[in-house]
Design a protein around this nucleic acid. Structure first.
Length: 213
DNA sequence: ACATTAAGTGATT
DNA sequence: AATCACTTAATGT
């Protein structure tokens, strides 16, 4: 438990007051997940609200069939906006959350987060801010879909991924990228090839390196 | 050696 | 930009 308090301190010291940090450490359930683990699937019910301490989580919307679309990433210090609305009204998830890399998070019980809303000013501010940031990201995701060409979307996708992972080189297949961008693998291969010719990326099997930000 | 999976390519819509 | 059909290359058993 002591180590949790330390990690909390590290990421939330400036956001939450000490008593709230204590409470989070007390009622929060710590979870470690490995890259690729599904945190919550579509249709599942939320157990509680996740606070991401370390790592990165990918938030995906999936169509009735098999087509997916990456909405945004959660990074350290973030929480999922869906969980906020879902927890409070105990609705089912409309999104899927997959760990992008090994991550550490704290699950907070619904009752606590509800109580904290009136109890802690900093908590309320955090929740509202999280909602707002997520809303912005959704809008961004929408006009990426509506107005950007695939080559631009690809570039943004790779940049986001590099940013979230904190490195320029990462493991990835064309098939996975195609799923995230909701396009076909063949098209991904071709767009990547173009980008490689322009000197933007370096392609390897199961591996990609972004050469410029 | 064989099967499986990832990636590249031309042609067609 | 999507889909098909096919090839090539790398990897696992």
């Amino acid at each position: 438990m002591a180590e949790i308090r330390e990690v909390l301190e590290e990421h939330f010291r400036y956001l939450f007051e000490a008593p709230l940090l204590d409470e989070i450490a007390r009622v929060g359930e710590v979870r470690r997940v490995a890259a690729g683990d599904i945190l919550i699937d579509i249709g599942a019910e939320f157990q509680g609200m996740p606070l991401l301490l370390e790592g990165a989580i990918k938030i995906i919307k999936e169509d009735d069939s098999q087509s997916e679309l990456l909405l945004y990433y959660l990074e350290s210090g973030d929480t999922c906006a869906m969980s906020l609305s879902c927890c409070l009204s105990s609705k089912r998830s409309k999104i899927r959350a997959v760990a992008e890399e090994d991550s550490l998070l704290v699950m907070l019980p619904v009752a606590s987060m509800d109580a904290w809303m009136s109890q802690y000013r900093s908590w309320k501010a955090y929740v509202f801010d999280a909602m707002q940031v997520r809303m912005d990201e959704l809008l961004e995701a929408i006009d990426m879909l509506a107005f950007m060409q695939l080559d631009e979307r690809m570039l943004k996708y790779l940049r986001d991924k590099a940013k979230v992972l904190g490195r320029m080189k990462f493991r990835s297949t064309h098939r996975e990228i195609a799923a995230d961008l909701n396009t076909s693998r063949v098209v991904v291969s071709r767009v990547l090839k173009q980008m490689e010719n322009k000197g933007l990326v370096k392609i390897g099997r199961n591996e990609l390196e972004l050469l410029s930000l």
